[in-house]
Simulated assay, not measured.
Amino acid sequence: MALFKHGRDHRLPLYQQVRDELLDNISSGVWLPDVPIPTESELTKSYGVAIGTIRKAVDTLVNDGLLYRSQGRGTFVRRPDFNASLFRFFRQMSSDGRFVMPESQLLSRTFKNPPQQAADALKININDKAICLDRLRLLEDRVVLTEEIWLPAALFSSLIDLELSEFGNLLYPFYEQQCGQLIASAKETLTIASASTGIAKALNTVENSPVAVIERVAYGYDKTPLEYRISHGSAETFCYQIEIA
């Protein structure tokens, strides 16, 4: 008999019930990126189902991009690479013509009620407390992006009392290290707007000049929204490019 931690929904095919159990191991941090998950034979013993059922459950997670197989090494939780995602939209070049990743400067960390837009994205109530990070991205001491980042306080409470200097340049590995929250996917929306007084001042541009606005909602492996981020960058350095085959 299968050993399911959260009971079984008999309306679902057995492989999908197993798939949901495996997904829970990923989203709860039982299985971590860069560490092989148990073998198919070990999972067969754990859940008391046929190896074909295990294989089909694992296949669905591989097809969904949550797991990947490495020949001769095993099956692993996939760790998405978001490092360059935002900057595919912007040409950021150093003074000598090299592409570089801007540095981060965290201006503030506040604990307050989120605006409606952030609350909706995070699927929380506007009366729920959230953590807001105000951050700049700089290239050779020049601000190229402003970022307003919202996190549900219930999942990121350990960030409330940290010194600003303790926050890393890359936030997603920092979330994992400090809070055990792994970012698995994200959805971005791109629009063009006019620079407000504050955004224009931060970007050293003219008020009402065009700026690119990128809104991102980042999700955990179980599709729980973990972060809402809105970034503004000068339209002068913005470039949209896509290959169509």
Rank of each mutant, 00 (worst) to 15 (best):
T60R: 07
M93H: 13
L162Q: 02
K112D: 15
A121W: 15
S70N: 08
K56I: 03
I126F: 01
D81M: 07
T191Q: 06
L171D: 01
K123Q: 10
S27E: 10
E140K: 15
I149D: 01
R69W: 07
K201P: 08
P80L: 11
V77I: 09
L159A: 07
Q177I: 06
A202F: 07
L164P: 05
R11Y: 07
A195E: 13
Y47P: 04
I131P: 02
G168D: 05
N25S: 00
V30M: 13
L155F: 07
L3F: 06
K201W: 02
L32R: 03
A193P: 13
Y172H: 09
R91L: 08
V144I: 15
F90I: 01
R137D: 03
D20T: 08
D9A: 11
D128W: 05
T197W: 01
F174V: 06
D141V: 03
I214C: 00
S85G: 15
L139E: 01
L3P: 00
L151S: 02
R78F: 10
P36G: 15
A130P: 06
A195S: 14
L14R: 12
F111L: 13
I199G: 06
Q16G: 05
G65W: 12
P152A: 14
K5V: 11
D64H: 04
T191D: 11
L145W: 14
L226A: 06
G74I: 14
R98W: 03
W150V: 09
F99T: 07
R135H: 11
G65A: 07
A50N: 04
R88P: 00
